[in-house]
Design a protein around this nucleic acid. Sequence first.
RNA 1: GCCGCGUUGGUCAAGGGGUUAAGACGCCUCCCUUUCACGGAGGAGUCACGGGUUCGAAUCCCGUACGUGGUACCA
Length: 508
Amino acid sequence: MSKVRVRFAPSPTGGLHLGGVRTVLYNYLFAKQHKGEFILRIEDTDQNRYVPGAEQYIIDCLEWCGLIPDEAPHLGGPYDPYRQSERKGLYKQYAEKLVAAGYAYYAFDTPEEIEAMRVRLKSEGKSNLQYDHHVRMQMRNSLTLEEDETKALIESGTPYVIRIKVLQDQVVSFTDMIRGEMHFDTNNVDDKVLLKADGMPTYHLAVVVDDYLMKITHAFRGEEWLPSAAVHILLWNYLGWINEMPQWAHLPLILKPDGNGKLSKRDGDRLGFPVFAMNWEDPNTHELIHGFRELGFLPEAFINLLAMLGWTDGTEQEIFTLDELIEKFSIDRVHKGGAKFNYEKAKWFNHEWIKKMSIDRLKPDIKGIFENAGIEITDQLQFEKIISLVKDRCTLLTDFIEQAGFFYKPPSSYDIAALKGKWDDTKASFFNSFLVDINKTTWESVAIEEAFRNRAAEMNIKPGELQLPFRIMLVGGKFGPPVFEIASVLGREETISRIGKAIISFTL
RNA sequence: GCCGCGUUGGUCAAGGGGUUAAGACGCCUCCCUUUCACGGAGGAGUCACGGGUUCGAAUCCCGUACGUGGUACCA
């Protein structure tokens, strides 16, 4: 078998949806497992939908996720160029070839004429309003016009498109790697536009031509493409390339968590979770759509959770590294049905990854988050200790600010409510004595705790009664790692200072 | 409307003729911890419906319902 080559072919219209990333991922996993190549091709044939920055954004997302293409517009490759707008000149010859072979035709109908046709059909009670074999002989095209008329029209610069001429009464079949045998009746397939009036190909022509030219062996795409697969297969046939047609796999959709339908960027705002891989700001409206990255997800977790949205290896394992996924992924274990996105589970994946991740891997990310929050890291060793102390209680990377910020900034307020019934004059005097004690102890958590317990014993107070007040003195609230660990990391001076301040505040 | 695809707890899912129908998230209870987590032990909660086929159906077949996608000179 020839070398596996797969492609991700997005149109750069803004943002990269989570479902898009999953499509990339499955492509990538399949390619790498088979020691093949993963290609990024930009489908920018619709000039009306061009969004500046969108292509770079896609590239950046792939990079963040660690899904690096082998060939791409910005990397180049043996099948340059990888941007369809730059391949424009290529497509027309194939469309013309189809016309010459009788598999396509020129159509001169204006949008108004097509609209009129649909109105007419509707008034006749027809439910099928497609431009297809039922109506093509009633329209203005090279099938109904005399040859010299057609020629004259083209030569005089009349706008025209080229449409595929779908043969009647045939069954188009193919094997989908996920769904098995698929059959379509050509009587239900319309004469899709192949080449637009502006000379650009439509998606239908462009995918087939480019997949052929780029020697794509396997084509994975979203389920929304299933109905038009018939057109694509017809094209592979009509163009005489059927033996080189890639194997198809139509991936299930990712659905909204609540109601119905494909997950869209709007749902993120509405339900309070990210839908895009990274923040995306629309260059025209300046609307900001939040990304997983900025909300504190690790790319490892993001990839992992996406992989599990529609696929399992059949065991109970849920946490996978990219390498494990490459090894274990199998397209035939991909689900047929769509999956509703569940943000709680997504966060669980991230939590698992933070727990599992090394301090060194976490460090740069957390440092960046801290700096954005105005916290400077000066002591590396202390920083590492802090990370190891709090990582188990952080679901998102951004949680580190809340969970560890107090190491860098003394509490600005105290959870007084939690103190209720746990603070009185004897407690105050305990801490006053303790303040003196800890001037002499070795500065280690065990030694601090020992001093704490000794003093408590001496004053005949249960140490447990004192721990919560102590915590609130240092942290401000009822959370965080063990208190004596906190004190030890904070340092003698800072601990003393916080206790002193708190005694005054608590007593007021 | 028409065409296609799908349907196992709230969600992700294993299981593909005989199972007490796995597991995970979330939820609840308890243990650990005089913080919050982590961790551990339990609990509630399911095969869309109706017909077949079969000794036996979540599993196979047919309908129905529901969901979802497409139905553009968008991808």
